[in-house]
Design a protein around this nucleic acid. Structure first.
Lengths: 359, 359
DNA sequence: TTGTAAGCGTTATCAG
DNA sequence: CTGATAACGCTTACAA
C-alpha cells in the first residue's frame, strides 16, 4: 500500500523473479513456486505471505519461458498456412477448420501459432519453425503433397498432423474420401440427366495458371485433394469431358476459369466445382452471361460453406469444417499424450440445394 | 551412411543436446554453440566437425525454448482476436490487417500467436497469455474500449499495440479518424441531395442485439469505432434520423438489421453502413425487396474490402487493411527495439463506387 | 581460436 | 509443510 515510488527510478522493465518474491516473503524459492503450481499443500498462511510479496513487487506469475523449458513443453501448436494469410483465410472453409481446432486448443490451454509459407519461400517457414518452440505442427489447410518442413520438424521430434497432405508416414492424417464424395456429386448430376458435365478444379499445384487440364496434368498434380477429386471425375465420366483449373482458390479465380467452360461450344449443362468458392465463381460467370442457375446450368460445389449473399443454396458436399477442426484437435490431444494415433477418416455428406435441376 | 539402426531401439524421442554434439565432435559446448549462433569466428575445420557430429546424432539445432530463455525473447507476438476465429475472420478487412502484420513479422522472423477471446470468457484469453511467452500483444481487430488483459499483460512488461482499443495509455495506438471519414461519407450523400439518410451501425458492444439505437446508446457504446462513426453521423445530421445496430459483423447480420430500416415508412433514400460487410447486407436486403441500388437506395460502407460476387463497386472509405497491418508491424519493430513509440494515425480516403447516385 | 563457468527463471526430487 | 539442490539446454563474458 502507499506509493512505491514506481514512477521515479523505474529500471527499464526488469521483471521481478520468483526468487525475489520468495526473499520478500521470507520463504524459500521452492515454496514460492509451490504456491503458483498449486500442487502440493502449502499452508494457507505462507501462501498468503507469498501472494502479498508478489503483489508488492509486481510479480505477475512464473515466467512462461522458464516454466516451458523446465517442462519441455511450450504450449504452442503451429498451424501451417500455405500462401499469405490474406489469401488462405479468404476461404471460409479453411477458417472454419481453424475455428474448430482453435476451440479444442483453447480447452487445452494451448495457443495457435500461424506458420505461413509464402508462395515462393519455404525457407521463411523453415526459419520460423527452427526458432519457435512448437509442441506440434498441424497442416490443416491441405497444401502440397510434399513439404520441406516435414524433415525439419520430424528431426526435432515434433509430432505432425495433416488433412491429406503432406503425404508422409510421420504425418498423422485426418482424411476425407475425396473420390467417393466427388463420385456422389457426379452421380447426382447424372441421375438428373446431365451428360455434358465439366469440372472446375482447384489449382493442381502452387502457382498453377488458369486453363484446361489433361488427365496427365491431373496425375502429376501437387495437391492431393485437387487430384483425387479430378480423378474421381475422370473415373466416372471418362477423359473426354472438359476440365479446367482455376488460378487460385477464390470466387474471382473461379469465375475466370469458369469462363473457359461456359464460352465453349457446346456449353456444358452442369459444372462440378472442386470447392464452394469456385462454385460461387461459376455462378457469377453464368449470371454475367445471362445464364440462369440451375435452369441453364447446374452447379455443384464442395465443402459446405455459407454464401450469405447468395439467395438459394448450393448443392455441395458438406465437410463440416468446424467439426473436422475439432477432431484434429482431439487427435492432437492424444498425440501429445504420447498415444500412437492412427490415420482417421472424416465423414462427408451430399447436401442437395437449389443449384441443380434435371437436364 | 548406412543404417544407423534407427528403427531398432529408438528411445522414445529424447532429442540430442548441444552438449552431446560437442562431445561427439570433441569440442567444448560453447564452441559448438558458436557454430550455430554464427557470431564469432570458429575455424572452418572445427565448424565442419561440429556439423558432422550434429548430422550423425540427428541434432536439429538449438532448442528454441532454451535459447529464448537465455535471450529473454520468445519471438512470438500475440494477436488478440475477439470472438471465435470463425467469426472474426469472416471479415476480409480484419484478415487483411492480419495479413499485413504477418508480412512484417515474417521479415522479423517472428511468429504470430492467436489469442482468441471467446464471447463470454475473458479468462480463457487471460490464462493463455499467462502461460505463453509473448514479446508483444497486438489488438489489431478493434475490440472493446477496455480489456482485462491490459493490466495483466502490462504487469508482465509486455508492450501492447492497438488500433483504437483498448483505450489505455499503456497501449500504443495506430488510429484512423473515424469521425472525419464518416463525415466524408455523409457529405457525399448530402451533395447528392439525400436527406433521409439512415445509419446501420456495427454492434455497439459485445452481444448487442439487432435493433434501433439512440444517441444515448451510442454514447455508452463499448466499441470505440462504432461509437465514433455513429457520433459523426449524429453530429452532421442531428439526432432524428434512424439508426440501428446489427447483431454481428456479417452480411447476414447486416441484412437483418437493414430490414428494420428498409421496411420503415418513409423509407430512407440512403444508408450509411459502418462496415462494408454490413453494406453488403443492406444491398442484399434491398435486392430482396425489389429495390435497386443505387436507383432506389444509395448505400455506402466502410473499410474498402473486395466483394467479388458483387457486380458494381461499393462507395466506401478505404482503410487499406494490409497497409495498416504493415504499419502496425513497423511500430511493433520499433517498440521491440526499445523505442518510445507515439500514437500514430493511418490515413483513409473516400472511394466512390456505383452504389450511390443523386436523390 | 577454443574452453571455463556463470547464469537465464523455473520446477522436481528428496530430505528434514 | 518447508528448504536445499540439481537439473532444463543454451549463450556469453572472460580467461587461456
Amino acid at each position: 500500500m502507499g506509493r512505491q515510488g514506481q514512477s521515479t527510478t523505474r529500471t527499464p522493465h526488469r521483471r521481478p523473479t520468483l526468487r525475489e518474491v520468495a526473499d520478500e516473503a521470507g520463504v524459500s524459492i521452492s515454496t514460492a513456486s509451490l504456491v503458483y503450481s498449486g500442487k502440493q499443500g502449502v499452508s494457507p498462511a505462507t501462501a498468503e505471505r507469498v501472494r502479498a510479496a508478489a503483489e508488492t513487487l509486481g510479480y505477475a506469475g512464473p515466467d512462461p519461458l522458464a516454466s516451458s523449458l523446465r517442462h519441455g513443453r511450450s504450449g504452442v501448436v503451429g498451424v501451417h498456412v500455405e500462401g499469405a494469410l490474406g489469401y488462405a483465410f479468404q476461404d471460409p472453409y479453411a477458417v472454419s477448420v481453424l475455428d474448430g481446432l482453435g476451440q479444442v486448443l483453447d480447452e487445452l490451454g494451448m495457443g495457435m501459432l500461424l506458420v505461413p509459407e509464402p508462395p515462393g519461400g519455404a525457407e521463411h517457414a523453415a526459419r520460423l519453425v527452427a526458432g519457435q518452440a512448437l509442441d506440434a505442427l498441424v497442416f490443416a489447410l491441405c497444401g502440397p503433397t510434399t513439404s520441406a518442413l516435414v524433415d525439419q520438424v520430424a528431426a526435432r521430434g515434433i509430432p505432425m498432423l495433416g488433412t491429406g497432405a503432406p503425404v508422409d508416414e510421420r504425418v498423422v492424417q485426418l482424411r476425407i474420401d475425396d473420390r467417393a464424395a466427388t463420385g456422389e456429386l457426379v452421380d447426382h448430376l447424372r441421375r438428373l440427366g446431365h451428360e455434358r458435365i465439366a469440372m472446375l478444379a482447384m489449382p493442381l499445384g502452387p502457382g498453377a495458371p488458369a486453363g484446361p487440364v489433361t488427365v496427365a496434368d491431373v496425375d502429376a498434380a501437387t495437391y492431393p485433394d485437387a487430384r483425387d477429386r479430378a480423378l474421381a471425375f475422370v473415373d466416372r465420366l471418362g477423359p473426354d469431358l472438359p476440365m479446367v483449373q482455376s488460378a487460385g482458390l477464390s470466387i474471382d479465380g473461379g469465375a475466370q476459369a469458369a469462363a473457359l467452360l461456359l464460352d465453349a461450344v457446346p456449353r456444358p449443362t452442369a459444372v462440378v466445382a472442386q470447392s464452394d468458392l469456385l462454385a460461387a465463381g461459376v455462378i457469377r460467370a453464368a449470371t454475367d452471361r445471362g445464364l440462369s442457375v440451375p435452369d441453364d446450368l447446374s452447379v455443384v460445389g464442395f465443402d459446405g460453406i455459407e454464401l450469405p449473399w447468395f439467395e438459394g443454396r448450393l448443392t455441395t458436399v458438406e465437410q463440416d469444417g468446424r467439426g473436422k477442426g475439432r477432431r484434429l484437435g482431439d487427435m492432437l490431444r492424444r498425440l501429445l499424450d504420447g498415444e500412437v494415433v492412427p490415420d482417421e477418416e472424416h465423414p462427408t455428406r451430399l447436401r442437395l440445394g437449389t443449384t441443380t435441376c434435371p437436364r
